[in-house]
């Protein structure tokens, strides 16, 4: 608003040099509202879908290499109707959950222990680090030799692929617990076990949960790998047979399904984290 003296002759408005304020979203660290966030995310998906459709509609690429979106969705619809998608997904989800749970249940106590006591770190960390660098793929033949091509072998591969990584991630989380929290526990007369249970574990829990979320993604990767190599059921197995019959639409459809499953699992983990660690939000 112009607030010049009332008697003055109307002045021409000063040249508007005011810098245009950048939108909140475009600033470093700026906030964003949920509708905008979802809107942008959906738009990017839609855009990619559009590009895909355009490429196939103009027949730039042979359908054998890249079928159109409608063909892919049609084949997925077919798989849903005959119940095969459901069967495949159920088997794979089951394998991932069990394999991942086995790895996690073992990794948490070991990771906490080696993050807390240097003696245990000396005993375990170098070994874990060593095994971690062995390519999981190389274990596939070995695990088949040990346990055939059934569920057990899938659990084993998932376990090998996630357990060792988890142990190190958890150790790092535990090490990041401020030493003064522990010292406070000592000045309150707590014994080591109470300090572990009441201070170290709650303090590192949000970080550990986040590590779990990340390693769940890897569990999926290793499962599909194992199913591609040798399996008689599961999403990876279906992709493998589809390749034999040149069913590119089915392969792409299943890859999309795998992406969706991963996204759903990730979002569930994130949601639970927000519920359990409410106090973390403002950080």
């Amino acid at each position: 608003m112009e607030r010049g003296p009332a008697t003055a002759a109307p002045r021409s408005p000063a040249p508007r040099k005011r810098r245009r304020k950048r939108h909140e979203m475009l600033r470093i660290g700026g906030g964003i509202s949920t509708p905008w966030f979802i809107g942008i995310a959906v738009a990017v998906f839609a855009l990619l879908l559009g590009v895909w459709w355009l490429i196939t509609a103009t027949e730039m690429v042979e359908p054998l290499f890249l079928p159109s979106p409608s063909e892919v969705f049609e084949s997925l619809r077919h798989q849903i109707q005959n119940g095969q998608l459901w069967d495949d997904a159920r088997v794979s989800v089951y394998r991932v959950l069990i394999g991942f749970a086995l790895a996690t249940v073992m990794a948490i106590p070991i990771g906490v222990l080696i993050g807390t006591y240097r003696v245990w770190e000396a005993a375990v960390e170098p070994l874990v680090d060593f095994i971690r660098y062995m390519p999981v793929v190389a274990f596939v033949p070995l695990t088949i030799l040990w346990s055939g091509t059934g569920d057990t072998q899938k659990f084993l591969i998932i376990w090998i692929g996630t357990f060792f990584q988890q142990v190190l991630l958890i150790m790092d989380n535990v090490k990041r617990v401020p030493m003064d929290y522990v010292n406070l526990g000592y000045t309150l007369g707590l014994k080591d076990r109470s300090i572990l249970a009441r201070i170290i574990i709650p303090s590192s829990a949000p970080g550990i949960w986040d590590s779990m979320r990340i390693s769940l993604g890897w569990a999926w990767t290793w499962l599909v790998l194992a199913e591609l190599v040798a399996a008689t059921s599961g999403l990876g197995y279906r992709i493998n047979t589809a390749q034999r019959y040149f069913e590119t639409d089915l392969i792409i459809g299943y890859i999309l399904v795998l992406g969706c499953l991963g996204l759903i699992f990730d979002q569930v983990m994130k949601f639970l984290s927000r519920r359990m660690f409410k106090y973390e939000e403002a950080r």
């Binding site: 406070l184 303090s203 660690f277 950080r283």
Partner: peptide, 11 residues
């Protein structure tokens, strides 16, 4: 002991 750093448990 009152520490120089903040030692309230955030949880």
């Amino acid at each position: 002991l009152v520490f120089q750093s903040y030692t309230l448990f955030p949880w």
